[in-house]
Amino acid sequence: MGMLSAEAEKKIQEIIARYPVKRSALLPVLFVVQQELGYLPDEALEEVARWLDLTFLDVATTVSFYTMFHRRPIGRYHIQICRNVSCYLCGGEAIREHLEERLGIRCGETTADGRFTLSEVECIGACSWAPAMQINFTFYHHLTPERVDEILRSLP
């Protein structure tokens, strides 16, 4: 213990209590931990394993299956640009290129100041408002290069 705030720990215990089988709480608990630490280091997985009566490997091999969990620190703003078909048809590639140029990084990279991580992701469910991206959990629709610049400028 000690890694997380008291508030996060309380939330985790509440989540675990909700499920008929403890292990079911794994994904939601990992989200709370990741929200708190920014990523999921080994020590955090050890801790989660203890809470849920699992082994470190049970947790680590589950984590590696899901794209939303990060085992290494990522940028403060995680820009996730959709590369799937509806966004592609509506000019998603140009948006990706524009973002890469503006941030000076390629997809999969983080800016030197740790502010932005850029990722290409599969369909995020914004197809009718394409092209789209998510920054952390916020959706941005109907993107144009100008709109992207505006969004980047508006981030605190």
Binding site: R23, S24, L27, Y66, T67, F69, V121, E122, C123
Partner: peptide
């Protein structure tokens, strides 16, 4: 947590089981 296959009903249940 980001896996298309979890929309398949039995994969979803595995995922829901952690």
């Amino acid at each position: 947590a980001g896996a298309y296959i979890c929309g398949e009903e039995t994969a979803l249940m595995e995922s829901l089981e952690g």
